Simulated assay, not measured.
Amino acid sequence: MKQLLVFVLFATLFCWLMFSPVYKHVVLLRQSLLQQEVDYMLEIGASGRYGYIDAAMIGDSRSRLSGYGFKPEILEYEVTTTSGIPGTDPASPLERGDGLRLVIHYPYDGLMDIDRLIGVDPPSGTARMAAAGMKMSEYVP
């Protein structure tokens, strides 16, 4: 019985040590891809040509991120401005100097569940990673 317990504990620890670096790299990669997408969308959306981030841009972003393995239907986009005007309306783009803020949320999707093997509680099922950024609009009417 003692040998069986030692085997189970050793096997659990071995599995955690073997797979822990892999899923942590996946979390880091997802986080960096989200941040890269936020930076790209803000660069385009706050440029002198647009001054907004509309639904078409968000749709293009979803398809780009789905190419990296993200599930497009669970990506959440939040576009806000410093002036309170909606930043998603192409009919009224933000004027130069107004801040355009974008936040993209994505769930951890059970990546940290293996931490239970060593007694660490994973994030809750509703926990989400997020990438955010803000850029001043350069649009001049």
Rank of each mutant, 00 (worst) to 15 (best):
K24L: 14
Q36W: 02
P122A: 06
Y68M: 09
D39G: 11
R101T: 15
G133T: 11
A55Y: 09
T126R: 12
I58S: 01
K71T: 11
D121P: 05
D109K: 09
I44M: 08
S83E: 08
R96P: 01
S61I: 05
P90E: 00
Q31N: 11
A56R: 09
L28S: 13
G110I: 12
K71S: 15
I104S: 04
R101F: 09
G51C: 08
I53T: 09
P122R: 04
Y52V: 07
Y40L: 13
L111A: 08
A55T: 15
F70S: 12
G99D: 03
I85L: 11
L28H: 14
P107W: 05
Y52A: 08
D121S: 13
P72C: 09
L117R: 06
H105Y: 12
I114H: 00
M41A: 08
L94R: 10
D121R: 15
L34A: 09
H25L: 14
K24A: 10
D113T: 14
Y23W: 02
V103E: 13
S124M: 05
P86K: 10
P123R: 07
L111V: 00
G59D: 10
S124A: 12
G45W: 02
L33G: 08
I74R: 07
F70W: 07
E78Y: 10
M129L: 15
L100C: 00
S47M: 07
L100A: 02
G133A: 11
Y23H: 06
P123Q: 05
I114F: 06
D39P: 10
E43Y: 12
G125N: 12
I53W: 08
G125V: 12
L34M: 07
I53Y: 06
G84E: 03
T126G: 08
R96K: 14
L111R: 14
V27W: 12
